[in-house]
Each structure stands twice: as C-alpha cells, then as structure tokens.
Amino acid sequence: MSGAFLQQLVDSLAALMLLVSFALLAQHRMLSVLNWFAAQGVLLAVTAVVVAYGTDNHELYISAVMTFLLKGLLLPWLLWRVIKELHVHREVEPLMNMPLTMLIALAVTLFSFHIIQPIEKISELLTRDSMAIATACVLLGMLMMITRRKAITQVIGFLAVENALFFAAIGSTNGMPLVVEIGIAFDVLIAALIFGLFFFQIRETFDSLEVDIMQSHLIQEDENE
C-alpha cells in the first residue's frame, strides 16, 4: 500500500470517528448510546492497526488488540451489565433538545478545527490531519458530559473523552510507549469498575441516577440540620 492511500485511509477513519462522536451525542436510548460507544472502541482499534502498519510500529499492534478487547468489548459489556441491573435502559434525558445540542456540537467542531489549523501546518506525520478531529471529539465528549442528566451517560461521555485522547495520542505521536498505554488502559478499566460500584451506591442512597436529584437531596439534608 502506498503512503498516499494510507493517508487517505487514516483520514477516512478520522472522519468516521467524528461521525461516531456525533452519533453518540444524538442517541435517545441508553442501549444505542452503548452500542455507539462500542463502535467507537472498535474504530479506535482499527485506526491503531492502520497507523501501526503505516509507521511500522509493532508495539501499536499490541495496543490495538488491547483497545479492541478493552474498549470494544469489556467496557461496553460492564456498562451494559450495570444498565441491566439498575433498569435504566430507557430514554436518555438531555438537558437541551437535540437540534440545539447538535448545533452547539457543530460550533465546537468548527472551533477545534480553527485552533488546530496552525499546528497542522508544521506537522509532517501520517496522521496530522486527524489532530483537529481528535480535539473535536474530546470537546464533543465533554459536551455529552455537560448536557446529560443521568450519571451513567455522563460516565459514557467521560469514557468517550478518553477514547478521543487515545486517538489524539495515536495521531500526534504515532503511539505512546507500551508501558504508558498499558497503564492508561488499566486506569480506565479500574475507573469503569469504580464507576459501576458508585452507580449502585448512588442508587441506594438517592433512589435515582439523576444528578439534579442528588443535589436537591443534599440541599434538603443541609436544611434539616
């Protein structure tokens, strides 16, 4: 495969990544959010394989396999179990209506494209074009955390931010040292496990996973004291 074709392939994968981030933001149902999150993980693994092939970096193959197993299978499965057991697999309740969220998301994407443009000009990497998209995906994940009511969707937003950061890492450094990547992967895994435990705790204490209700509950307690 020629360099130009690989470049196009990486660009296409980056574009797909952006599309998946938008799709994640646009979903109504909890389970479809989870499916798109899993799709994002698989896409990351594919990108890692392509970049590994393009740059001849063998360590990236290992991290691609790890990404696939962890972000494509294990984390979605863990979250799916939590959702099943807490019976929250209904509607996602966004704070704003969808078209407005989408417009904000477009503006965020435009903003990150604008700020990355000067950086892109000085880079010589295979993946230089995907930097802007990775930044946009980070911001989109943050937008998802901001605009959702339920704790569980906020956590998915957080994990999407992590995915985007990994994508940015592949894009800007052609893969971090393997030790760092294994460390991050385990961090994320442990974070997801702790989040899972937290969900049950939150549910037991507040009878709901909605962030607003937790706040009002605390305020009530303060007043009682």
């Binding site: 660009d11 938008f22 989408m102 994407t109 494209f113 074009d129």
Partner: peptide
C-alpha cells in the same frame, strides 16, 4: 422528522468541515 432532517444537515456540514480539514490541506 425535524430531528431527522437536522441530522441530515449536521452530516452535510460535517462533510463540508472534513473537506476543508482533510482534503484541502493534504
């Protein structure tokens, strides 16, 4: 339906952005 159509608009706009980002510079 409005959501479906605004989705189409978002996708078209993303096409415009990716054209500038990925194809013009390259």
């Amino acid at each position: 339906a409005p959501e479906y159509l605004s989705g189409a608009f978002v996708i078209a706009f993303l096409g415009l952005l990716t054209h500038y980002m990925l194809e013009v510079g390259a």
